[in-house]
Design a binder for these strands. Structure first.
Length: 432
DNA sequence: TGAAATGTTGGGGCG
DNA sequence: ACGCCCCAACATTTC
């Protein structure tokens, strides 16, 4: 049997500027690219019309077309990664497995298991930095500890970053016959137990005008002022290096957002427990009200607070919510309604096309006050003030809550002043 | 990557 | 001209 090297695609659904793929082709012959639809993850998804699965599926088709142009194919599998690899080691004489590193707790555990499994059979498992520009261990305090505060982290990140040294892993120069020549059928969406949706996927906008106006426009939800990059970065349909190359000289504010992303990736790697418990443990003492009826009203966009309801309806209808509004609805849920941030986090996980655990947990813990470098708990957003500042014409509100001025629109679920004071009292007693 | 409460200042109306 | 009050505008502090 011919020696084969596997390249395992995960959250890097592209062949262009892909570090692990580049290394596999550079160092090995006969590379077999694979992707696994992981049932450990898929089985957790309640809605069988999940646009994210469709997004992955669509992009796998594109990747496969690319490989086919090189007389190869893409092997798409369905199952538990461990079982899949056991089978692969029986079907192929595998020399090594290449992949790109993933810093989430589940991925870390999965990769450790695969590493152990392969090691028993004397197969190398090699991971590469691809998802971020600077990873764990590269941006540390002078004493070697990871940063837990954003501002000094970002300062160090910018110090370490060098545009001229930013690699572009082009595989066009590498010999294409390094791929295996097998041919595979890809499972359909239905084979995987999912259905087509009618969701539109956002297209990347890194145009000159968008980036130049980014600092000013990004906070206005009625304006199309953001890059729409999130879902593409999450699934790696664009490389982070390419995103930086195209933006770094045009908008500092935008690059700061990309640094926030790396900051949270680093936090989840160093502090995996923060995915499910408060970064600052004393915040776990807060006595959440966790009223299910109120949670339902929040989910459905029926709180009687127009800006909150607009955000939740945008999320429900499109799988996306403007970032400014994400902060407002998160503050409202955790402060005004005193509902556990994990409930909100889980709802976002279910609905957001661009759901990324590290950023989502980071954002929710920031809003609830429990996170590293979070806002102090007494910073409570006033939904009306936020509306005046960021949606003064109420364009965004009118778009998503057309009945806002009619009798059908509900009364506020809680009075702002009372909600604010209740939150202050509850947090204060938990933290004192 | 707040907002509200409280404090300070200074212009203007008025007796 | 003066003191007094009101209050907007701004600054500071508090939550």
């Amino acid at each position: 049997m011919k020696k084969t090297t596997i390249f395992w695609h995960r959250r890097d659904l592209r062949t262009d500027d892909n570090h692990g793929l580049y290394e596999a082709l550079k160092n090995e012959g006969s590379v077999l690219p694979i992707f696994i639809f992981d049932t450990e993850i898929l089985d957790e998804l309640e809605d069988k019309k999940d646009a994210r699965i469709e997004f992955i599926h669509e992009h796998l088709k594109e990747i496969k077309t690319f490989y086919q142009k090189h007389n190869s194919s893409l092997l798409v599998l369905h199952g538990k990664p461990k079982d899949v690899f056991k089978k692969l080691t029986e079907d192929y004489d595998i020399k090594s497995v290449y992949t790109n590193r993933d810093y989430e707790p589940y991925a870390q555990k999965r990769d450790r298991e695969i590493y152990d499994l392969l090691k028993e059979k004397d197969i190398e498992f090699k991971g590469y930095k691809d998802h971020v520009v600077l990873e764990k261990g590269e941006v540390l305090k002078d004493d070697g500890d990871p940063y837990v505060v954003f501002t000094p982290y970002s300062r160090k990140w910018r110090e370490k970053f060098n545009l001229d040294e930013l690699p572009n892993y082009k595989i066009d120069d590498l010999t294409p016959n390094l791929f295996t020549t097998d041919s595979f059928e890809m499972p359909s969406l239905e084979d995987l137990g999912f259905e087509k949706t009618d969701v539109d996927f956002p297209e990347i906008d890194l145009s000159k005008s968008t980036l130049e106006n980014y600092a000013e426009d990004r906070d206005i939800p009625a304006v199309k002022g953001t890059s729409r990059l999130s879902v593409h970065l999450r699934f790696g349909t664009i490389s982070i290096r390419e995103a930086i190359r195209r933006s770094i000289k045009k908008s500092d504010t935008f690059v700061t957002e990309l640094i926030w992303r790396e900051f949270y990736q680093m936090i989840i790697y160093h502090f995996p427990k923060s995915a499910t418990s408060s970064f600052k443990s004393k915040y776990d003492k807060i006595e959440w009200r966790n009223n299910e009826k109120e949670f339902e009203a929040w989910c459905e966009g029926k709180t009687g607070y127009p800006i909150v309801d607009a955000g939740m309806r945008q999320l429900n209808e499109t799988g996306y919510m403007h970032n400014r509004v994400r902060m407002i609805v998160a503050s409202f849920l955790t402060k005004h309604l005193l509902i556990d941030w994990r409930w909100g986090e889980a709802y976002f996980a279910q609905k957001l096309l661009d759901y990324e655990l590290a950023s989502n947990v980071g954002g929710w813990q920031w809003a609830s006050g429990s996170g590293c470098d979070a806002a102090p708990y007494f910073r409570i957003f006033n939904p009306y003030t936020q509306t005046k500042k960021f949606d003064p014409q109420r364009k965004y509100i009118n778009k998503w809550v057309p009945e806002v001025d009619s009798e059908d629109y509900p009364e506020p679920i809680v009075d702002h002043k009372e909600g604010r004071e209740r939150a202050l009292a509850t947090y204060k007693s938990a933290l004192s």
